[in-house]
Design a protein around this nucleic acid. Sequence first.
DNA 1: TAATTACAGATAATAAAAGTCTATAATATC
DNA 2: GATATTATAGACTTTTATTATCTGTAATTA
Lengths: 144, 144
Amino acid sequence: MKYSKATNYALHTMVYLITLPKGRTIGMQSLAEIQDLSPTYLSKILTKLAKGGLIESTPGVKGGYKVSKSRDDISFLDVIKTVEGETNLFHCSIEHNQNKGCMIENVMIQAEENMKEELANTFLIDLADQVDENSRSLIKGKAN
Amino acid sequence: MKYSKATNYALHTMVYLITLPKGRTIGMQSLAEIQDLSPTYLSKILTKLAKGGLIESTPGVKGGYKVSKSRDDISFLDVIKTVEGETNLFHCSIEHNQNKGCMIENVMIQAEENMKEELANTFLIDLADQVDENSRSLIKGKAN
DNA sequence: TAATTACAGATAATAAAAGTCTATAATATC
DNA sequence: GATATTATAGACTTTTATTATCTGTAATTA
Ligand code: SF4
Ligand code: SF4
C-alpha cells in the first residue's frame, strides 16, 4: 500500500509550478525532462489536474501549464484527491445492514481523517519560499 | 491506493479472536467460513500474524488459533504493520543528496504519522466489549 | 499555412495482490 | 504406534491496478 507514482509526479509538478513567477507557463516537454519521466504519461496526470481546476493549460505555440488562479488555496489533499480520486484507504469488506457505528470502521476512518486533515491544512504556497532554496533546485538536480 | 484485503481480513480475524473467552481456540476452517473466504489464503495471513507474535497457533486435533498473551497490548497498527510490512505511503521518487529537510517529504511523512499515531493508540481490547454487541455478531452474520 | 503545443483513446507492459493446489509437519486421541 | 486433524510451506496461477507507450486529433500562435 503506497501512493501511486502519479501522485508523486503530481505533487512535484505542482510544487514546481507554484514556484514559477505568476502567470509564467512551462511546457509539458520541459516538465517531463526535469523529472525524468515520459511526457505522455505525465500528460495524463496534468490533464487530470487541469480538469480538477488546479492548473490551467493552453495549447499552441506559446502554450503550456501554469498554476490556476486559486494558487494560494491549493492544499496537498487537493492534489492527492485530484489524482487518486476520492480515495478511502479502508473499505468494509463484508456487506451487512448493521454496520453503522462499527468500531473497526470508526477507528480506521478516524485515523485516515487525521492524515487527511494534515494534508488539507498544508498548502502548496506554504512551501514556495522554502522550495526555492531546497526542493525545487533538487528536482532540477537531475537535469543540471 | 487502499488497504489490501489481507489487512482487512487480519483486522476482522483479530477482533474476532479477541472476543473469544481467554485461551479458547478456533480453527482456520471456521474462521474462513465466518468471513466467507478461502482457507488457504487466510492461512497465509494468519501465519504472518503468528510469526509476528500477535496470535498463537497449535496444530493437531484440538488445535487452532488464539490471540497471544500480549492480547491487551495489541494495537491496530500492530496488526496492519504485521500484514502490510513496514509500510510507508510516501516514498521519494527522485534520488538526490540534498533531500534532508525537504518540505514535500516532511508534509507527507507527518500526515502519515498522524494516521499511524491514531492506529497505534487504539487497541483491539478496547473494542472487545462493543464488538460483542455489534461487529462480531455482524461478522458472523453471513454464516447465521 | 505551418509549427507547436495540449488532449484523447486504445493498447501494451509491468507489478502487485489475491487466490489455488499440493505436499509436509506437528499434535491429540485411540 | 496408527490415524485423524490441524497448521505450515512453497510453487504456481489468476486477477487487478498501475504504469507506460503509441497514434491520431484539436487548439493556438506566428
Ligand atoms: S468494518 Fe465493521 S461494518 Fe465494516 S465490514 Fe467490518 S465488521 Fe462490518
Ligand atoms: S519529496 Fe523532496 S526529497 Fe523527496 S524526491 Fe521529492 S523533492 Fe526530493
